[in-house]
Design a binder for these strands. Structure first.
Lengths: 340, 340
DNA sequence: TTACTCTGTGCATACGTTTGCATGATTATG
DNA sequence: CATAATCATGCAAACGTATGCACAGAGTAA
């Protein structure tokens, strides 16, 4: 209805038009663009030439309708406030592009929204789904999977749900931090949590606590929520308490930066009086003001693995789900004293 | 070809199926979902019921093909390393969603890539384009526009190109900073640039310099590139020079944070010995370690304006292009001495 | 010559919707 | 009671592409 306004040269160029100009059938034009082998060099070039002149590009929508493949991956992300995710987002779109896929982006404020969002995504017949830092209800996971759309959870996992997942080895990361802090002779330890309902937080905390317990140590726990402000406030509480900790492990980097700023505000010297260790290795961790010692997530490898896992399953629906955990590595910087 | 693997319940549910089960025609089902008025309550409810049972949702691809509207907006972004953009990205997707649009995301490493990226975007028949912090060749702009796809540039502008644009009033922002720094009695001023080929940098710099000139002042210019490292290095050079500046205006916040860390490293006290002012007001500007005085871009309003401008033109191709500049406001924090 | 294989191209159909038009049923009007 | 008007629904033709099948012509082999 709205199009009828004297659309002079505004009509879209279709394969029919190109065919007409080139004196071939529409099929032939289609074959040129879908890379069919058996076509004479002559016609191929003629068609390509005319297409270029007319500015023709195959309509991906029409193509998707018939091939039943959109070449679109739905990407659902939440918690974009954490500087870790822009990096991830960028890497995902970049990588998928290289492989010839497009990204339909959805941002969910809270995890609960994801379930409501998904039907919208699916209406666009995306060939696969990547869910970053959010989880689906098992109900929704089931629906999506039996529809034949593979799902990969990034930075989360849900065993038994049927969805594949890629995550950092958070449990082992937690253990590692416990190890190096104890080795360095720290006595009064603390952990600032992330959001309690995330596997990321749970695993890091469990790894940390379990290794502490194994070595007959323990720690104080203070609530954060994966944010700068959360880390700041939690650290303030810890540092003002009577038995002030000499080392704090934070659920992620952004929390750790908050903690460092709390120490700065109170005049607590880092790392002499206090060691702080984070988790992620976001770009700011290297900044002079922080110089944060942290556990680096192997983002590149995680992205690569996610994409691979997903596309494998796009091509073969019958592949089962896989959980993949990649090891993090300790990046030693100035915010923690790690020598005895 | 790949689909033929014993896909039992894996067949997609179409309006035909729903129609069959409901004992109505496919047209009727379609009418139910496109909100046609004249339909008996009885059939509407029966169809909706069956659709719910079967998990039917109209295929957006097929719908797009016939309506010639995809309800998809292409969003091309670059320089995701600047923390300003995740915020922008999040806001855009959020807002567009609320209005019933989807976002196809493309990230361009450098501006030059955008031209190569666009044909891919257009193949998906996006109804409109938002280009964040990147520009198009005038050639490409012309092609896109005459194709009937409206374009809005965000944080850039290109007068005469036919593309609409929304940007902060960078020139006035630059003037404002000059004003307050001179008012406070600063004598030795400096400007750390962003990338020279961006209107953002050019305008901020021009505004700053022109106001200085008007008040018979001038400043030293040091090259940055809109990054933390760029700001850090540039500030280092400035602060080590014989006539060390007593105030630095940085092309954006991330540059300013780098500059502050350079000062921290050299032991230059802020704001007593040095004032630093940025531009953007990214989340980190509030962090205790920086407490950055800066010119805030009215992001919310800019997003809102961009979306409005774009959707207006999606609905009416004949509307001309508009350049919109929204004023920034000075946010006074601790990194600058602004009293004489 | 006949028969047969290849190669390159066209014909026609399908993908899952929307929508103008036609039609039968129902209600209002004279 | 006849006719007109209204309502709810069905029919069929698009949208722009991909692709199985048919087929013409060229080449090869007998």
């Amino acid at each position: 209805m709205p199009q009828q306004k004297s659309s002079n040269s505004l009509r879209r160029i279709t394969s029919h038009e190109v065919a007409l100009r080139a004196g071939v059938s529409q099929s032939t034009v289609s074959r040129v663009f879908s890379g069919d082998e058996r076509l004479s060099e002559a016609t191929r070039e003629r068609v390509l030439g005319i297409a270029r002149d007319l500015g023709y590009k195959p309509n991906a929508i029409a193509r998707s309708l018939i091939t039943r493949r959109t070449k679109i991956i739905g990407l659902v992300a939440s918690y974009m406030t954490n500087p870790f995710f822009p990096v991830v987002l960028q890497a995902f779109t970049q990588r998928l592009h290289e492989l010839g896929w497009r990204v339909l982006l959805f941002t969910a404020g809270t995890s609960e929204d994801v379930d409501e969002l998904l039907p919208e995504v699916l209406a666009y017949q995306v060939d696969g789904l990547i869910i970053v830092t959010a989880s689906l209800s098992s109900q929704m996971t089931r629906e999506v999977l039996q529809r034949g759309t593979p799902v990969v959870l990034f930075n989360r996992y849900a065993p038994g749900s049927g969805a594949s997942a890629v995550s950092c080895a958070n449990y082992e990361g937690g253990r590692l931090v416990a190890e190096v802090l104890l080795d360095a002779g720290h006595k009064r330890l603390a952990y600032i949590t992330g959001r309690a309902d995330t596997s990321t937080n749970v695993d890091r905390q469990r790894g940390f606590l379990e290794r502490l317990a194994e070595r007959k140590s323990h720690c104080k726990i203070e609530l954060g929520n994966f944010t700068y402000a959360g880390g700041f406030d939690a650290a303030l509480r810890l540092l003002k308490s009577k038995k002030r900790p000499d080392a704090i492990f934070c659920a992620n980097d952004i929390t750790a930066l908050g903690a460092l700023d709390a120490a700065r505000k109170l005049g607590v010297r880092v790392p002499d009086e206090l060691s702080v260790i984070g988790f992620d290795d976001i770009p700011m961790a290297q900044w002079t003001a922080y110089d944060l010692t942290t556990v680096r997530q192997p983002v590149e490898e995680m992205i690569e693995a996610s994409v691979e896992l997903l596309l494998e399953r796009v091509n073969n629906i019958n592949l089962g789900s896989v959980l993949k955990f990649l090891p993090g590595t300790l990046v030693r910087r100035g915010s923690a004293r790690l020598q005895p």
